[in-house]
Nucleic acid binder design. Sequence first.
RNA 1: GGGGCUGUAGUAGAGUCGGUUACAACGCCGGCCUGUCACGCCGGAGGUCGCGGGUUCGAGUCCCGUCAGCCCCGCCA
Length: 601
Amino acid sequence: MEEQPLNDALGNWKRTHYCGDISSADIGNEVCLMGWVQRRRDHGGLIFIYLRDREGIAQLALDPDRDPEAHEKADKVRNEYVVAVKGTISPRPEGTVNPKMKTGEVEVEVSELRILNVSKTPPFMLDDHVDVAENIRLKHRYLDLRRPALQKNMILRHQVTKTVRNYLDEQGFLEIETPVLTKSTPEGARDYLVPSRVNGGNFFALPQSPQLFKQLLMVSGYDRYCQIVKCFRDEDLRADRQPEFTQIDCEMSFVDTNDVMTIMENMIARVFKETIGVEVTAPMARMTYAEAMDRFGVDNPDLRFDLELTELSSIVEGCGFKVFADAVKNGGMVKAINAKGCATFSRKDLDDLTEFVKIYGAKGLAWVKMTEEGWQSPIAKFFTPEELEKINQALDAQVGDLLMFVADSTSITNESLGRLRGHLGQKLGLAKKDDYQFVWITDFPLLEWDGEAKRHVAVHHPFTAPRDEDLALLDTDPGKACAKAYDLVLNGSEIGGGSIRIHDQSIQSKMFNLLGIGDEEAQEKFGFLLDALEYGAPPHGGLAFGLDRLVMILTGSDSIRDVIAFPKTQKATCLLSGAPGEVDDKQLQELSIRLRIRKKE
RNA sequence: GGGGCUGUAGUAGAGUCGGUUACAACGCCGGCCUGUCACGCCGGAGGUCGCGGGUUCGAGUCCCGUCAGCCCCGCCA
């Protein structure tokens, strides 16, 4: 099917303005604009065209009496055609100014129009107000990315990285690239592997982070390193998690925890100021891990609202309600939240909340509605008046409040109630999008016990230094040692984290032993780091921010996919390119690889 | 590996108790319209109801399976 070629040559036309940049200041000037047709409104005579580029939209006016030739050409124009126009900026006639538009005071009286390229009718309207299923958007991502909302996100993302680079440069950081084809490391996430053709049977791993290399750069004396870098983890996806993601990765020498936190919080404050104009006060709040778990049940508390957790173990110990008493007796705990004024929740609401805590392993959710007559609750009968009074007092329970309790192991109680707290904050509208509450979480445990593997695993990673005062604990009670680790949490989201590293080879060896990694294995996996530590490694530490999550919050996006140009689906595929895909037998042969599953027909 | 939600013209939706030819909107095509701005008016085209099987005289609708997208648990140092 042959189409009449409609395209005009660009010729020697030079664009003078972005569409979104024309204003009253340009009135009377000759301009040349180029962009995409957002919409054409044909009034029989007069034709209006919305011309769009990345900076915004300009209204073109084509009058048949003034320029019959351009008007005739405009008749052929359709949505998403690529058009260039020359014309005069003129004020819109009295009463036709559009205050909703940035360029709404003016329009372009077109004298000449060139159709640079035609377009098929796109599969969906490129308006921000049109909802389109995400799989359709991802398949035609190049069109989706043409929508103003997504362009705004990408531009803001650029502003973030630009601000970060400027700041880090001023602070003496050097951006140094590290390998993408590197070595698989145990611990941590599943690696993405790349087969080596030259070394048949061997594999590279894509980096989960440049961790070891940035430490080596400190040993090499670069003093301050940074990199905005892709990292890869072959784990399942979430709304805020992609298998390839970007970190703002930093490391510096001759510093301790407070030095790192200070430099980094100032960077974040600057980013907020320069990208969305929000003043963030530094220094930011700090809270130990222990306090966060006690008050909020999680290590990434959302501080935009209260709803804090209260532990009632000592009150309900030995009480008549077996569920509570047993939880305490078995080494667990009982905690509660007081949702002020929520006694109006329906039975269904409460059932839903119960289902919610069950996701995190809680066996149930006990609740109490505070009424004029006291407790209205299925569990009221199990408690003595004294116990009721003590619980009311501990929770500051008033008429109209809703009390919710979980009794379980310490970890399940904390996590389920902590998540319930976050859930309620959203549900009750307490978490405002334009409220930014930062908090550093510090003094994480160094190790945690993995019951399945019957060994300690690093809470942060195996190169994290213990607190100086806890060094002796490594020999006596390693589970009690705290780490020089810190996470920056914003509105319940961990946006960055890091630690001071071990620069002493003997302590590093001790860590590996505690983690059940033998000398031989350690030498094989991390030998190069252990060796490097023996050649004058300076004290050093750093951290990495998740750029995607940060931009997600700055743009108010609900999904990480809205701030990544070409994201993957939840099954880690790319609907645009079709990746991952099969490869030729010849390619496999070169890589010394034989498949154990048959290719699809 | 597991739980949940969704899938109907290009797009996003409605579709009753299983019953005639699957609706109206936006978009698209044609016509009209000289100040609109999510322009308006008239007309038209456009459907493998995700896919496969089953129940039934009859399935978009009920059942089973499967695929895809999304949210979550596990996982993510």
